[in-house]
Design a protein around this nucleic acid. Structure first.
Length: 855
RNA sequence: GCGGCAAUGGCGGAAUUGGUAGACGCGCUAGCUUCAGGUGCUAGUUCUCGCAAGGGAGUGGAGGUUCAAGUCCUCUUUGCCGCACCA
């Protein structure tokens, strides 16, 4: 009587065994090659979700595989523990953010441990711990010293719901990324990281990241948005002193200019509006239109003639009108442009609307100068410069250089490089974040907090009764004395953007308990991260900030690398079918069941509409709680299903039948091994001298499986690896043993199967390994090696085509020569029939691939 | 609008450098066995003509290159993602 596999008991048993033996604790040591596997650390929101299960399963397979391959694998875990949800919980339920966070961590740690991950838990960190963030405060002060930090008054994106400043990246479609509230513009004094100082370096660095998805590299490079062009100073006619500075990527088209335009937020526009109520009204309208309606009205270009006139830099007799125009962005370039309607569609639309001249200055190669005119569409292609005096006859690139040279000679402009990337504003008006270590003194201004005073800890006793920042409301916390003059002074009450903590946590894992941020030898040994795994949603924000931060830390001597993540893998999302009742109310999978006809209905028998499979979300109620899956099927089955079917970089669909399938496989594997173990020779029996043909075939299949599965794991094709596991299991299941050498082959096959599945289903593998008679754990065993000779076949089935159509397959020795192959192929009955009485023109033989007979 | 990615059975998806399309799983069909808590085993399952042997068609669509195309090239359709008045 065979027992069923008891996942719950077995998984607990091996988790304890791994912990007791400290299997995943590692130290920097140089005899083995190192391998650093890191999954993006979770925000402790309360409990893990399916996205975590997928993320950590993928990482764990890589970590366990690399360990078996002989690498010294660092695989740590921590908590991205600062952030708004903790404060929201505080406001909603009156629980302190710290308490809420640490309680969540405790729950989620247990959940992750129940997954059986090969984590070195001794390295666990939580970013809200003062022993973590004190280093961040020090880093900030060091960045300040080397000029990577500045305080500036600037327009910021203000989230009225979260009452805080948002970075550009955190504004999505004009709304706060977290709150979804309409973002407002405000002017505030903020701390900034000069990420733009590294703009070129960050862009060039992308080239070196050849193990990153192309998609992410493109997104980063677009985000940095480098463009080459010129700044041009247009003299204002009336004063001849003041100028308007514009940015252009097309200095070659300067002779086609017919106007200049300012952004509504341009300081000059503001100044001019003070005695011009109509302009003031126009600007107000532009601002009111804001980001949301912009989409609706984007087609319409509107402008307001300021009455101001500027002089053309190459010919002061040419005067251009100056408009304030709604399509000019203050954030980009200088907030002012010159318009060349012939070669820019926006400028052309604008010129048509306000009756401005349109002079073509670039002639397409296939056009005659007399016949060429601009009508409805601006010409943006290549060509030769015309109507432009000293630039005439030049090609565009050549003309750009000539125009810039002329501008620089006359002091009316200069060639420049422009980036879309903006500096990173890190001040947040929140409580649950890392305090910014700055003290404001009336006499000395903003003074860095002394290093020996770090960490500057958050006050514990705060209240969330009033809107805004609870730290600022605290009665005593902010009062201190000036480190420089000793007078009474106030602390900065803003805290850091929580993207700060995640910008260096990967390095802290190398020496998580060190007094200093990092032990230099440790970070030098472990960094960069060899394989980073996480969601595509961090393609720009987190990954770009981390790349910047690593450069900053490098500049300050903390570490030696410039790129933190050598390999990056972005996994897809988890999707599930959606269900709605007759009223359109969303139903969760627990609220429905299958009726006799196999259709879904509610538990009280009402009709259910089944909707498409979409990303799991609370709002659509199509989530599955991993806790339920883990307790009913166990971790191995859940992990195995996560890896089956869908390639890991694509979205996967969670289905009941899919997890059931993996569950059946778990049981089948258990039966396959335990069911015949008593009949097999004991562990360590020497290899027999010869095998039966059947046994040899299985033996070859086993070695082919080792080769294929290793290759599939290395290249993140886990679904293909799972398929090979199934195939191997099928082959073993069909194999009938008769003599002792067959039994040896059977044992060898089973042992190999267990080894190959062990990164995916580590608990079951340990249990079966023990059943197979080993006292050492499989976690410490080397990955199986394959024998080259065994994966090469002596005979193969070779397809034979006639005129590209398959007519037969012949079984032939792999080393047969072409004449033999041809003779055998031509002798096939089906081949003879297909050729008929036609003339054979050519016979193509591709060794061990195919034969094609052309008639 | 610009850029990127994708499209293969009822479904998820396999398929080295172009070389037997549909591996593997799910689902479904038929049968067997045993237990009935979601079992196990065997056979079949791209479509189509045929009792069968054996044909024909087939990887979103249209062309092309090639002895040979899911794979390469051109055009096109649909879907997803990113960016979006960036001067």
């Amino acid at each position: 009587m065979m027992t069923r596999y008891n996942a719950k008991e077995t998984e607990t048993k091996w988790q304890k065994a791994w912990t007791d033996k400290n299997c995943f604790a590692v130290e920097a040591n140089t005899d083995k090659p190192k391998y650093y596997v890191l999954e993006m650390f979770p925000y402790p929101s309360g409990r893990i979700h399916m996205g975590h299960v997928r993320n950590y399963t993928i990482g764990d397979v890589i970590a366990r595989y690399k360990k078996a391959k002989g690498f010294n694998v660092l695989h740590p875990m921590g908590w991205d523990a600062f952030g708004l949800p903790a404060e929201n919980a505080a406001m909603a339920r009156g629980v302190h953010p710290g308490k809420w966070t640490y309680e969540n961590i405790a729950v989620m740690r247990e959940q992750l441990k129940s997954m059986g991950l090969s984590i070195d838990w001794d390295r666990e960190i939580a970013t809200c711990h003062p022993q973590y963030y004190k280093h961040e405060q020090k880093m900030f002060l060091d960045f300040l010293k080397v000029g990577l930090v500045e305080r500036k008054e600037s327009w910021v994106n203000w989230d009225p719901v979260d009452q805080t400043v948002l970075a550009n990246e955190q504004v999505i479609d004009g709304k706060g990324w977290r709150s979804g509230a309409e973002v407002e513009k405000r002017k505030l004094s903020q701390w900034f990281f000069k990420i733009t100082d590294f703009a070129d370096d960050l862009l060039e660095g992308i080239e070196t990241l050849d193990r990153w998805p192309e998609k992410v590299r493109t997104m980063q490079s677009n985000w940095i948005g480098r463009s080459e062009g010129a700044r041009v100073f247009f003299k204002i006619k009336d004063t001849q002193e003041e100028t308007i500075e514009v940015y252009t990527t097309r200095p070659d088209t300067l002779f086609g200019a017919s106007f200049c335009a300012l952004s509504p937020n341009h300081p000059l526009a503001d100044q001019l509006s003070s005695d011009n109520p109509a302009l003031k009204q126009f600007i107000a309208d532009c601002n009111k239109m804001g980001t949301s309606e912009e989409a609706v009205e984007k087609a319409e270009k509107k402008g307001f003639d300021t009455g101001l006139r500027v002089l053309h830099p190459f010919d002061s007799s040419i005067e251009l009108p100056v408009y304030v125009a709604n399509f000019v962005l203050m954030d980009y370039g200088t907030g002012a442009i010159f318009g060349c309607p012939a070669h820019d569609q926006r400028d052309l639309d604008f010129a048509r609307k306000y009756g401005l001249s349109v002079t073509p200055v670039v002639l397409p190669a296939d056009q005659a100068i007399e016949a060429f005119e601009i009508t409805g569409e601006a010409y943006t292609g290549n060509g030769t410069i015309i109507n432009s005096r000293f630039l005439d006859g030049k090609e565009i690139e050549e003309a750009k250089l000539a125009a810039i040279a002329e501008l620089e000679k006359s002091g009316q402009g200069k060639g420049t490089v422009q980036f879309r990337l903006r500096d990173w504003g890190v001040s947040r008006q929140r409580y649950w974040g890392c305090p910014i270590p700055i003290i404001y003194c009336q006499d000395c201004g903003a003074v860095p907090a002394p290093e020996e005073s770090l960490p500057i800890e958050l006050p514990e006793d705060v209240s969330f009764d009033k809107p805004g920042n609870p730290i600022a409301h605290h009665p005593t916390w902010k009062h201190t004395s000036c480190p420089s003059c000793g007078k009474a002074a106030e602390r900065e009450t803003d805290t850091f953007d929580t993207f700060m903590e995640s910008s260096w946590y990967f390095a802290r894992f190398c020496s998580p308990r060190d007094e200093n941020a990092f032990t230099r030898e440790e970070v030098d040994y472990w960094l960069p991260v060899d394989q980073y795994i996480g969601g595509i949603e961090h393609a720009v924000l987190h990954l770009l900030y981390s790349r910047f931060f690593t450069r900053g830390l490098n500049k300050c001597g903390y570490l030696g690398v410039k790129e933190p993540f050598k390999g990056l893998f972005t996994q897809g999302m988890i999707c599930h079918e959606t269900y709605q009742d007759a009223e359109g109310k969303w139903l969760s999978p627990e609220e429905i069941e299958k009726n006799d006809k196999g259709e879904f209905e509610t538990l009280d028998g009402k009709a259910v509409t089944v909707g498409p499979s979409i990303k799991m979300s609370k709002s659509k109620k199509n989530t599955i709680d991993p806790a339920d899956i883990l307790s009913s099927y166990g971790s191995d089955t859940a992990r195995f299903f996560m890896l089956s079917d869908s390639p890991p970089d694509r979205d996967m669909e969670w289905t009941e039948s899919g997890i059931e399938g993996s569950w059946r496989f778990t049981q089948r594997l258990w039966r396959l091994v335990t069911g015949q173990i008593d009949e097999l020779p004991p562990a360590g029996t020497p290899k027999p001298v010869s095998f039966s043909d059947n046994a040899l075939e299985l033996h070859r299949t086993v070695h082919k499986a080792i080769a294929a599965i290793s290759e599939n794991i290395e290249s993140f094709r886990f679904n293909a690896a799972v398929a090979k596991i199934y195939e191997l299991t099928n082959s073993i299941g069909q194999f009938k043993t008769s003599d002792s050498s067959d039994k040896w082959v059977m044992r060898d096959a089973l042992e190999t199967l267990v080894s190959l599945v062990s990164p995916m289903m580590p608990h079951l593998a340990e249990e079966l390994w023990q059943q197979l008679g080993y006292s050492e754990m499989i976690v410490d065993k080397a990955w199986p090696e394959f024998d080259e000779n065994l994966i090469k076949d002596q005979n193969i089935n070779l397809p034979v085509q006639v005129n590209g159509k398959l007519r037969a397959t012949i079984n032939i020795a792999t080393d047969a020569d072409d004449d033999t192959i041809k003779a055998v192929a031509m002798a096939e009955e089906a081949v003879i029939r297909s050729i008929g009485d036609k003339q054979v023109r050519k016979v193509i033989i591709v060794k061990n691939r195919i034969v094609n007979i052309v008639v």
